[in-house]
Design a protein around this nucleic acid. Structure first.
Lengths: 194, 194
DNA sequence: GAAATTGTAGACCAATCGGGTCGGAAATTC
DNA sequence: GAATTTCCGACCCGATTGGTCTACAATTTC
C-alpha cells in the first residue's frame, strides 16, 4: 500500500459493496476485513469505527450519484430529456441504495442525524437543478410554467413521494411503470399544449 | 388459520424470501416472525428450529425449480430448444439461490450434509433429463452422439463448472455471455455437421 | 358452559457474536 | 538498526439471538 488515503478508499469501496447488500447492521467488521484479506483490527488503523466507515461510504455514494446525474444530463440537450434522464438516474440510484436506508431506519437513530444532514444538503442541490431545468425549458419555449421555484419544488415532492414505497415495500415489477407514469404526468402537465 | 400445514407454508414462503436475500446466518427468527406479524415463539409452534425452516425452504425451492424446468422444456418442441431452455432456467435459478449457498458454506457444516443429500438426488434427476434430451435429439437425427449417458454427464459437468464462479465470485456482466458461450460450445460440438 | 385443544406471546436464559482495544510482531523507512 | 508505519491475534464485554417455558387467549369438543 502506497499511502493511507488510498487504502482508506479501498476499504470504503469494499465496505460499500457489502453494506449495499446487507445493510449497516448485518454487515460485520470481520466480513469487511475478510473481503480485504486483512485482520479485523487492521481496519481500525484506517477508520475509527464501523460508523465512520459507513459515513464515508454514504458521502462517497452521494458524490458518485452527483457525478452520474451530471453525466446523464450532459448526455442530452433538450430540457425535457435532461429532466427525464435526471429522474431516471435518480430513482435508479435510490432503488439501489434502499438497503442503506433499511439499515439506518432499523433502530439506530444515531446515524439518522448524519444522514439527514447529507440529505438536506442534497435536497437543496436537487432543487437548484430542477429549478434550472424548468427555467431552461421555459425560456426555450418548451415548458410553460409561471413560477420555476415552486414548480421545481412540486417535482421534487413527487420524486420524494416515489421513494417511500420504494424503500418500505418490495415491488420489482411496477417501478418502471410508475416512473414512466410520473414522467408522463410531469410532462403532460408541463408541456405547452400545441 | 384453517390448518397447521397451511400456516407452515406461509412461514416457509416468508422465510424463503428473507433467507434468499440475507442468507441463513444473517436471517434472524425475530425477523421472520416480525414479517409474519407474529411473536417469535409462535413460530416454534410450527417449526422445531431455524434449521428446520431452512430445510423446508430448500426442499420447497428444489421442487419449485423442478416445476420451472418442466415448464420451460414443455414450452418448446425441438430437443435443441428444450436443452437451451433447460440450461437457461437452471443457471438463472442457481444464480438466484447463490445466497443460500453463501449461507451454507459459511461455516456450519451441519447443513452441508443435508444440502448434499438433496443435491445428489437432484443431480440424478438432472442426468436423467439430459440423457433423455440427448437421446431424443439423437433419434430425431438432430444430434449425433455415440453415447447418450456419457454425453449427458459431460454436459452436466459443464453446468456444474459454471456454478463455481457464479457462487464464489461476483460478476454481473458476463454471466449471459458465458451462458451463451457454453450453449454454443455444446451445440457446435453436438450438432450434426451438414 | 366446562374441559380440552390449539394457538400466541412475553419473560427469560445460555451461548455466541461482534465492535472495539491492546500489546506487540512484521514490514518499511530512514 | 532504530524509528515508524502497518498489521494482527487475543481478549473484553455488552448486545444479539436461537430456543424454552409458562401463562393465557381463542377455539373446539363434549
Amino acid at each position: 500500500m502506497i499511502n493511507k488515503e488510498e487504502y482508506r478508499t479501498r476499504i470504503l469501496l469494499t465496505a460499500s459493496r457489502i453494506f449495499s447488500h446487507y445493510g449497516f447492521k448485518k454487515t460485520t467488521m470481520e466480513e469487511i476485513s475478510r473481503a480485504l484479506k486483512k485482520g479485523k483490527s487492521s481496519i481500525y488503523y484506517y477508520f475509527g469505527s464501523k460508523e465512520e466507515i459507513f459515513e464515508a461510504v454514504v458521502l462517497y455514494e452521494a458524490n458518485q450519484l452527483r457525478t452520474q446525474l451530471r453525466a446523464a444530463m450532459k448526455e442530452v440537450d433538450s430540457p425535457t430529456d435532461k429532466l427525464r434522464n435526471y429522474i431516471f438516474v435518480r430513482m435508479r440510484a435510490f432503488e439501489k441504495l434502499s438497503n442503506y436506508y433499511n439499515a439506518v431506519f432499523d433502530k439506530n437513530l444515531d446515524h439518522y442525524e448524519f444522514i439527514e444532514k447529507i440529505r438536506s444538503k442534497y435536497d437543496r442541490e436537487e432543487l437548484a437543478i430542477l429549478r434550472l431545468l424548468v427555467y431552461l425549458g421555459n425560456s426555450r419555449g418548451i415548458f410553460d410554467v409561471k413560477d420555476s421555484e415552486y414548480t421545481a419544488m412540486a417535482i421534487q415532492t413527487m420524486l420524494k413521494g416515489m421513494e417511500v414505497p420504494l424503500f418500505w415495500r418490495r415491488r420489482e415489477i411496477d417501478i418502471n411503470n410508475r416512473l414512466n407514469a410520473i414522467l408522463n404526468l410531469i410532462f403532460d402537465g408541463i408541456n405547452k399544449r400545441p
